[in-house]
Design a protein around this nucleic acid. Structure first.
Lengths: 346, 346
DNA sequence: ATGAAAGCGCTAACAC
DNA sequence: GTGTTAGCGCTTTCAT
């Protein structure tokens, strides 16, 4: 990499016969610099091609104006919406964003956390990988008083701030809706249960079953990693069941849409033979046929809230309470994929 | 923000009665440190909770190990796939990623570029906003010899490295395919034509028409920003045409899927009444009915290539030729949405 | 194999 | 309103 001489505040100071301190003050809009000097300095800076050196500044100020973000994967609709929200707020507030993905792998998450720590991010935003058991890789942040906010995939056993939706309620409502449409055997396809989002949705699903005198069957619970291949496998698994379900609650829209494909190819009618509820309200829900009933999960809004919360804390506008859970509204959006089930009891 | 005393190499040096220089060398695996000292230092560093100060290091080394990325929007399937690819490579190679989105707005892109410049990224990766006309906001990078690589939305009038697919060829093939299926009036829905991707696809579309003795009709060209609302509007616009097209080439899968919805609701049969070809090969193409013919556009691979290229250059493994365009393979994937058109001529 | 010392560019406390 | 000064923590000659 070419190293071309950088212009520093010393160069400007020398040229203008003022002190570096004045230049520094002027450039950071300190009030105690006269209009005239300020103008001269601004002009000189521009004409000389000056750019501030964030490292020197950070080194001096012990602060980076950088937020770290660790997500399970970048290429997901939900995640990219959240990131869009975070970026918007961070950018408005003058923070840079360092982003990395754990690829659903605890080891990589640990490495990412270490990098973020060494990069001295002012705050960290995290959504956990599928298989993260232990959160001790975030201890360095807690120990140093660097705020960490979790969103979506959170952990309840850490005294940190969480931004989530009520997954239990969402799972309950999704299932209850299927029951209301007359479903008697409701399957559930979901992700790794060590993650709150999936565990809570499952709990909601189970409660709804129980409350309506339906028995939870382990055989009707499919746990996979919700990717394209697993979706097709899960759908085939369901087709192969002796007592085929008449409804499924799938905690991911893409997965649900893919399952629907498989079912339709197998000759089933949706929702008559199989009612389906997805999760997230991605675009895909409005495009598959029949349109997919789902839970609306406001990703971009979640990102904005997470970032606002963190920034406010960093700017000392608001404290980050020790255990502070923010729950966003989510709601069931009913579409054709689950309506008017043939066995509708009412 | 709490400021808790950080451990420095001086602390370690003092404790171990060695010099800071030795500690520094040891920590960065310089060969000229004895095994024994190395071990002592590593242990002390760990036990004292040392973390390296990247700012001091960067300040000293005049290098950041950070790559900047500016994309038009974060919440897009294609973009997030590319980012996933970039992140993978960057992370492997020990680079951090600073990411920002221009929100399809030149002004924001300019601001983002300035931030990246001040953050002293070692290299910059850019996909241009819809409306960026002038590229002078990247001049500071060129002037300082900081490598900038463009991908997807590139500009040909800058002597910089571009990573793209052959959009002209893709547009040609998509259109030719529709013609081969018997379409006589082929419309085209696309994005802002000041962007190469859309301009080139249009050129391909026009050439294919001309070569097959079909006349390009301005009225059959719809330019919008490809979002959900515009998609529906465009579809309605097409339905309202006096001479309704019998085929459409749409440069975006989501947009194509949404149009298909509108057409189907209006009672048209796809592909019999209207053959459709999309672009990107998103998941959605395999889920809509009928499945969507599209151009496969390998986003993650593109991200990996872009990042590799940049990193190799930074590591002096490979030069970044002055004008260097890398063209990735893309291909037409034929599915039901465009097949066996009723007017098929052969 | 290790140490001494200079300096990367900036900011802030203190002086005037 | 402006200047002086002392580091922030690290790397890297140049010695030894």
């Amino acid at each position: 990499m070419k190293t071309i001489q950088e212009v520093t505040i010393y160069d400007i100071a020398r040229k203008l016969k003022v002190s570096p301190a004045t230049v520094s003050r002027s450039l950071s809009n300190h009030p105690a610099v006269s209009k005239k000097t300020r103008k001269r300095i601004a002009d000189a800076a521009k004409s000389m091609g000056y750019r501030s050196n964030l490292f020197a500044s950070n080194l001096r100020k012990q602060r980076t104006n950088t937020l770290g973000v660790i997500v399970p994967k970048l290429n997901s609709n939900f995640v990219s919406s959240v990131l869009a929200g975070i970026e918007k707020v961070a950018n408005q507030s003058g923070y840079n964003l360092i982003i990395s993905q754990s690829q659903e792998n605890e080891k990589k998450e640990i490495a990412n956390a270490a990098t973020m720590f060494n990069s001295r991010v002012d705050g960290l935003i995290v959504s956990l990988a599928f298989d993260t058991k232990d959160l001790s890789h975030f201890d360095p942040f807690f120990d140093k008083g660097i705020p960490v906010i979790f969103f979506d995939r959170v952990s309840y056993d850490k005294s940190s701030t969480n931004v989530v939706i009520d997954n239990f309620k969402a799972g309950y409502e999704a299932t209850q809706h299927l029951i209301g449409q007359g479903c008697k055997r409701i399957a559930h396809i979901t992700g790794n249960l060590s993650r709150n989002v999936y565990a809570d949705r499952l709990k909601g699903y189970r409660l709804a079953l129980t409350e309506h005198d339906l028995v939870f069957q382990k055989s009707q619970l499919i746990i996979n990693n919700l990717d394209e291949q697993s979706a097709v496998e899960a759908a085939n698994q369901i087709l192969a069941m002796k007592k085929r379900p008449d409804g499924i609650f799938i905690t991911n829209d893409s997965c649900a849409a893919l399952c629907m494909q498989v079912f339709k190819e197998a000759g089933l009618y949706i929702p008559e033979d199989m009612a389906i509820v997805g999760f997230n309200n991605d675009l895909i829900t409005r495009v598959v046929e029949p349109n997919l009933t789902t839970i609306n999960y406001p990703g971009e809004e979640m990102g904005e809230i997470v970032a606002h919360h963190l920034v406010n804390h960093l700017e000392d506008i608001a404290p980050l309470a020790v255990t502070n859970t923010i729950i966003l509204k989510s709601e069931l959006i009913i579409r054709e994929s689950s309506l008017h089930h043939k066995n509708a009891s009412k």
